[in-house]
């Protein structure tokens, strides 16, 4: 029970609880569709709904058969392997280029800063289908279409805006006298970067990297255009699965991905706290 001041009217109390009920319903709308996937993926039948056995919590209603399907199907396994091979390399590229550029952009005198920033954020804004078709035509011309590196480059492009945004945000609070202090003590620019600047902006770099990773790991449109059938990734496989014959194996894969995103989210939250502690920003 909330403590209301003595002058609170009944209407105000009703609104206080009413508002919370409304918000609870919206939170339910936000989270329930994701959570409901998890029990459904343990369904023993080929149906997509709760069977009477499941509702009675009868163990016979549950099974791991969809997970077994996922692990035993060569197509799903290849898709998983492709995803794992593409995303980290794309992330590495995006983070390297993006961090350097963000450091450059955060300096005081940058010519054409606004224009450069706009170009670097644009991959996030341009509709994916347009990027995908553009890359499809151009990469075909230069022989990158249907290759591993074509997909990696395309995914790195998509990850760049996230790295730029997160690293720039960490650099806002960066105290430049630290680099000057390091230089005055005799460290060269490279050493200053790795020993002084990098540890301080690391949380931003890592969270940008996580965003870039999940973007690549979750991307369908571009990979369908730039990739060939051998490069089918996990989301692509899910997309075709959902389009053609929807099989409950998708639910098992979805559950695995939900768990993965929970893990990433936890890492990100820990990083955010660490970053606030290091930079002495009291959480407001």
């Amino acid at each position: 029970m909330a403590d209301f001041p003595s002058y609170t009217s009944t209407g105000q109390k009703a609104w206080h609880y009413g508002f919370r009920v409304i918000c609870g319903a919206i939170f339910f709308f936000l989270v329930a569709p994701i959570v409901v996937i998890i029990p459904l993926s343990f369904n023993a039948t080929m149906f997509f709904t709760f069977t009477p056995e499941m509702l009675r919590l009868d163990p016979a209603g549950y099974s791991l058969r969809h997970y077994r399907d996922f692990l035993e199907s060569p197509e799903w396994q290849r898709a998983l392997r492709n995803s794992i091979q593409i995303a980290p390399v794309a992330t590495l590229l995006a983070v390297t280029f993006g961090t350097l550029a963000a450091i450059g952009l955060s300096q005081r005198h940058v010519p054409f800063k606004r224009a450069i920033m706009a170009v670097m954020i644009s991959p996030m804004i341009v509709p994916l289908i347009i990027s995908a078709t553009g890359m499809f035509f151009f990469y075909s011309k230069i022989g990158l279409q249907g290759t591993y590196w074509g997909i990696v480059l395309a995914h790195a492009v998509l990850g760049v805006p996230f790295v730029i945004i997160t690293v720039t945000a960490t650099l806002v609070g960066f105290d430049n006298s630290l680099t000057r202090a390091s230089a005055s003590l005799g460290a060269g620019p490279v050493r200053t970067f790795f020993k002084v600047q990098m540890p301080l902006i690391l949380p931003g770099v890592i969270s940008g990297g996580l965003f870039a990773f999940i973007t690549s790991f979750d991307e369908v449109v571009i990979v369908m255009f730039v990739g060939s059938a051998q490069q089918q990734t996990l989301p692509w496989r899910m997309f075709t699965g959902l389009r053609e014959q929807i099989s409950p194996t998708i639910l098992a894969v979805a559950t695995i991905l939900v768990v993965l995103s929970i893990l990433l989210l936890t890492v990100l939250e820990l990083l955010r706290r660490r970053s606030e502690r290091i930079r002495g920003v009291t959480p407001a």
Binding site: I34, I37, L40, F217, M238, F239, A254, L264
Partner: peptide, 18 residues
Amino acid sequence: LLPFWTSLLVRTSSWKVL
């Protein structure tokens, strides 16, 4: 943030199922 971080395909497939 949880839905924000969850795969787009996962959310679309769950709506398809629901």
